[in-house]
Amino acid sequence: MPQQFIELGEGYGDVYELLEIIKTNQERFHQAFILTSTTKEGKKVLSLAAALKAVGDSKFMPIYICREGIPFNEEQPTKRQSKFEAQIEQLNRKVVVVEIKHSSIFSEPKLFYQYLIGILRLNNYIPVLS
């Protein structure tokens, strides 16, 4: 099953768009992710992502992501992170937290997203390519 990341933005107002996508596609919801990484300056940031099941015979799995625009603090989650987790809890599901490399070490976003798909497939969070 081919998967593709669809970037909504860096996690400011677009988090609310991601929440609406999850809410309106509850029957397609597959898995939610909090992807944490460290910038070159040593600051921890997170990305919020949600994978949806394929529609009909398409076999295409979209993974919507708000990439690396939200500060990460283990003790005090931000409002955006809390709202995201609450939305997933309403579906009686849990968010998967994954530590990843920051996208800045990749020469282009496409390579970063290929890396992420590999990580998510290896951990059986999304289906393998068929």
Rank of each mutant, 00 (worst) to 15 (best):
L52I: 10
V97K: 07
T36G: 00
E20P: 03
P77T: 01
R93C: 08
Q26C: 09
V98S: 04
E89G: 03
K43V: 07
G11M: 12
I21M: 10
L19D: 02
S37G: 05
E74S: 11
Q4M: 14
K23G: 12
S107E: 14
F72W: 09
E27G: 08
L8S: 06
N92A: 07
A50R: 00
F5W: 07
E17V: 10
N92T: 09
N92V: 13
K79M: 04
A54Q: 14
S104R: 15
Y12T: 09
K79R: 00
Q3L: 11
E108S: 15
D14R: 11
N73L: 13
E75I: 13
P2A: 15
I70F: 06
K43T: 10
T38C: 02
I63W: 03
E99G: 13
T24D: 13
N92H: 09
E68V: 01
N25V: 14
T36I: 04
K40E: 01
F106V: 11
K83F: 12
T39A: 04
E20L: 00
A86D: 09
A32P: 11
I65W: 00
S103L: 05
I22T: 05
Y16P: 01
A32G: 10
L19T: 05
I22R: 03
E89F: 11
K59E: 11
A86Y: 06
L8F: 03
E27R: 12
G11I: 14
H102D: 06
S37Q: 04
R28G: 01
I65F: 01
Q31T: 08
S58F: 15
R93K: 08
